Simulated scan of single mutants.
Amino acid sequence: MLTSALAFASVAALINITPGLDTLLVLRTSVSQGRSAGLVSALGILTGCVVWGIATAVGLTALLTASRVAYDALRIAGAAYLVWLGASALWRSRRGGWDEGAPEVEVETRGRWAAFRAGLGTNLLNPKAGVFYMSLIPQFTPDGESVFTMTLLLTAIGMVELAIWYWVVSGAAAALADRLRRPAFRRRMEQVSGVAFVGFAANLLADGGRTA
């Protein structure tokens, strides 16, 4: 079990630090709203990982490869959500300030809830995340070991690695934003992330590599 866990940790670490949608979300949120909001968005992503891990442990993610309808429904919903996130980011970049007339505590509360919701939504509405868990984790489950237990253990290992990675990313992004202190930088980040979210949505809609 220990050998399998260490092997999985090595592979998962390489996958986790590869730039992707989730890392972009944490990066963008940390730049535009500060490190605390970036970490809240990371918490939403990790919550989604917990859901996918449990779903894999009980066999629910098998539905994504067994049913094209289920996979496509989640894929389209995920793409629509990414388009909404991208459009919102582009709108904010054109509009300028964020809720300038609202009380500071209210803005902070809404911002953190939105950050958590974005992290959770982008993770749960991505069918590739479910397929990833279902295809990778079984390869590191030794014969004779409980599939349920090993799945939860490997999911926990992946989450710890992700949490460390997002801690580093959010800290670096927030520090960079504080150093520059330019509204133009924040607007540019919103523009870049908005286009990237729409690009991820297009890629998700164009995905045809799954076998039913």
Rank of each mutant, 00 (worst) to 15 (best):
Val50Ala: 06
Arg117Phe: 13
Pro183Tyr: 12
Ala212Pro: 07
Leu124Cys: 07
Asp178Gly: 07
Pro19Cys: 05
Thr109Cys: 01
Tyr71Asp: 04
Ala9Thr: 07
Val58Asn: 02
Ser32Trp: 03
Asn126Tyr: 01
Gly171Ile: 03
Tyr166His: 15
Glu161Asp: 12
Asp72Ala: 00
Ala175Gly: 12
Met134Asp: 11
Ala7Gly: 06
Arg179Cys: 03
Ala87Cys: 05
Leu90Lys: 09
Ala57Lys: 04
Arg181Asn: 15
Ala196Pro: 02
Val192Asp: 02
Val69Gly: 01
Leu46Asp: 00
Thr56Leu: 03
Leu43Tyr: 03
Ala5Pro: 00
Val169Tyr: 03
Ile45Asp: 04
Leu25Val: 14
Arg28Met: 08
Leu21Lys: 12
Leu6Ile: 08
Val31Ile: 15
Ser170Arg: 09
Phe197Leu: 14
Val169Cys: 13
Leu136Val: 14
Arg92Trp: 08
Arg112Glu: 08
Thr3Ser: 10
Gly144Pro: 14
Gly194Arg: 12
Arg95His: 15
Ser193Met: 01
Ala73Thr: 13
Trp84Cys: 09
Cys49Met: 13
Asn123Leu: 09
Tyr81Asn: 05
Trp52Asp: 00
Arg186Asp: 13
Leu136His: 08
Met134Cys: 02
Ala184Gly: 13
Thr65Leu: 08
Gly97Asn: 14
Val26Cys: 11
Met189Cys: 12
Ala80Met: 15
Thr56Phe: 02
Arg28Val: 12
Ser32Arg: 12
Val198Ser: 02
Tyr81Ile: 05
Leu6Arg: 01
Ala102Met: 09
Trp113Asn: 00
Thr65Val: 13
Arg117Ile: 10
Val105Tyr: 00
Gly20Ala: 07
Leu43Arg: 02
Phe140Tyr: 15
Thr149Phe: 10
Ala163Asp: 08
Ser67Ile: 03
Leu205Ser: 01
Ile15Tyr: 09
Ala202Tyr: 05
Thr155Leu: 04
Pro127Gly: 10
Ile17Glu: 06
Ile15Trp: 04
Ala57Ser: 14
Arg68Ile: 01
Gly101Ala: 13
Val192Thr: 10
Val105Lys: 04
Trp98Met: 11
Ala70Gly: 05
Thr149Asp: 15
Glu161Ile: 15
Gly48Asn: 06
Ala70Ser: 10
Gly158Arg: 05
Gly20Arg: 06
Ser36Gln: 09
Glu108Gly: 00
Ser193Ile: 00
Gly209Ala: 06
Arg95Tyr: 07
Trp167Pro: 01
Leu85Asp: 03
Ile45Val: 11
Thr122Ala: 12
Leu152Tyr: 02
Met150Leu: 06
Ser93Leu: 11
Phe140Lys: 11
Val50Asp: 02
Leu2Ala: 11
Leu27Thr: 15
Ser36Cys: 00
Ala177Cys: 03
Leu205Glu: 07
Ser4Pro: 06
Ala9Asp: 05
Ala173Ile: 10
Trp165Cys: 13
Gly48Gln: 06
Gly38Cys: 09
Arg182Thr: 12
Ala42Thr: 09
Leu27Pro: 11
Glu190Lys: 04
Trp84Glu: 06
Tyr133Phe: 15
Glu145Trp: 07
Arg188Val: 12
Ala206Pro: 11
Phe148Lys: 08
Leu204Lys: 10
Ala9Gly: 02
Val58Gly: 02
Leu25Asp: 12
Tyr81Ser: 10
Thr122Leu: 07
Ile157Leu: 13
Thr151Glu: 01
Asn16Trp: 00
Leu64Trp: 13
Arg75Tyr: 01
Ala212Tyr: 05
Ala174Thr: 05
Ala156Trp: 03
Gly144Phe: 07
Gly86Ala: 11
